[in-house]
Design a protein around this nucleic acid. Sequence first.
DNA 1: GCGATCTATGTAAGCGCTTACATCAATGGC
DNA 2: GCCATTGATGTAAGCGCTTACATAGATCGC
Lengths: 359, 359
Amino acid sequence: MSERDPKPGPAPRASGAPPVSGAPRAPRAVDVAAAAEVSIATVSRVFNNPEKVAPAIRERVLATAKAMGWMPHAAGSALARRRTSIVGAVIPTLDNEVFAAQVGAMQAAFADRGITLLLSCFNYDQDQAAHDVQAMLARGVEALAIVGEAHRPDLFASIQARHIPYIVTYSHRPDSPHPCIGFDNRQAFHTIARHLLDLGHETIGVIIQPTAGNDRVAARLDGVREALAERGLGIRPQHLCEGEWSIDFGRQSVRAMLATDPPPTAVICGNDYLALGALLEARAMGLSVPHDLSITGFDDIAISRQLDPPLTTMHVDNHEIGRRAAAYLLACLEGSRPSALPPLVPTLIRRGTTAAPRR
Amino acid sequence: MSERDPKPGPAPRASGAPPVSGAPRAPRAVDVAAAAEVSIATVSRVFNNPEKVAPAIRERVLATAKAMGWMPHAAGSALARRRTSIVGAVIPTLDNEVFAAQVGAMQAAFADRGITLLLSCFNYDQDQAAHDVQAMLARGVEALAIVGEAHRPDLFASIQARHIPYIVTYSHRPDSPHPCIGFDNRQAFHTIARHLLDLGHETIGVIIQPTAGNDRVAARLDGVREALAERGLGIRPQHLCEGEWSIDFGRQSVRAMLATDPPPTAVICGNDYLALGALLEARAMGLSVPHDLSITGFDDIAISRQLDPPLTTMHVDNHEIGRRAAAYLLACLEGSRPSALPPLVPTLIRRGTTAAPRR
DNA sequence: GCGATCTATGTAAGCGCTTACATCAATGGC
DNA sequence: GCCATTGATGTAAGCGCTTACATAGATCGC
């Protein structure tokens, strides 16, 4: 057909010639097309619209591709199709089983739809989170799930500028500007505190993660304060320990608290890891739990039920959060505009670490 | 210059015109170039070879890009550059803190070099693993880290066909055909068994993960058998429980074992979760650990040290495995061909759950 | 002061793929 | 039996970016 006038310029790579040296290039669609004696378009159709290709040819192409070990290269198709089939998940850390479970569930849900999950762990560092989101946007993620809403405003701004669907997980505020799937942290801790108050506790300690830059944790503390206030009580400063969640921090906090006068008769912990530490240390100090000290956790991680005594905590179904987040994003990607998501309701699991205070 | 003869065909998108409807398209390099009054090549250089651009222009382009919220789109650059800057990690599950730690460490190491980590959890299913690897290859991963070497042969074959570097983690056999970073599972369990034998135990039970399709676990069992055989001992069938690793399986196994006659005086567990279950159940049954029953774990997960009594186990530095795997792959990507990797040596941590058997 | 050398920038050719449109053969209606 | 359909396949135009090479000033040596 139309001959293009040969211009000076880089000599076109002689595509038929064997590679000059070393590593054999990966096969491309055009190679498969040549080998199967069809056009490149047909090869593409076999993989994207198989019903549009005659069965005989389809099989031949499939066989050829398999023999050559060829699969459509994602970068090329992403470009042509303007769809990367990648979504991103932004979580604080994999070291907490709670987030690992969410990621696992999302990954499974997306994999079913041929969507790849990109993961970022921001280690509770807002700058890291903002940076990671940028990187994900550059990678062309089509949707984003993010733990918590206490992030730099430009993080959300840059997502919104791209008009891609996103969802905040592990948190739920009715008046949040963001779509979110999770539970009401304040309400949950209100429930826990109420449980202890109803048992007759009046001096209640709190061991909690750092509240700065963590909306979920701040809400939890508020929930406790609110419940106590309703009974005319408060948290004494010496009964409030805030620090990195870890079993060790739970241990040292409970030890410090029990050295105060009067000591608390119950301790509310921001998560199960802290509660675990509190429980182990209390027992190591020779206290009887729950009679000398009641302890509550949050999340209901796997070991909590196994402890002696088993931990009273609130159960959160993190796999369900992951699944619902994935379902929401998937729905958005398919064009529907899902309506407000109902919050999950964590349930109080009364086990062996709470009881009425000793008189 | 050379006019191309206008042919019938799709009308070129009037790129200057505002989008006809709805969603504003994401800005492209060409838009930034136009706005900054430079060529598209200069824009690209600003982001890839900034030193080749005059400072004044560089700043102008940077400012324009920022104002427009533009970043080079990964799919486009991957294609042009023939480098995706993606590597894949293939692990059994995130529910085990051991693998979560490896992934976390790798992710951090790669992120430093601008490399994105793609994650797949194959849930101990070999077909899933093979499938996931295919998907990753299609995504253009430039390297791959895979837990264990008990995989379908075509999994390794397809990696090798692509000539991309890979590494097997959490396992180390001197005679493995694959580069690997990990430890000698057989040796490690030989050490554990020896520890118990040296304490005077002769009736030793084993609670272990399914060995089928799991080279690491099979090697562990071999290690125990070998150590016992050296003393003329063996594992009685009723003292060998093989099943899914979970705290509950540890519990029920120990209960079953203790109902046999004679019961074992020590139990070797395939990992800390199983040991945890064994310890909790033994205590719940009123036994004194370690005097009535010695228990060992493997991995040294976070809670193990915190238990009462603290668990005797072997410590494996999984973050280190992740870091080394990442370092190895990074080195390969930079062209060097690192030599054989030395195995890590897990260390026996004698804590409170092992002692001489009661006479 | 003039050609040789550099340096900064622009031009355009792909990277590997998808897909709108063109084409061509086979089919069916009347 | 001929034209309008229909269905299968091919052609070629991008998708957004990088980079080899071309080019045009600026700089420098003698």
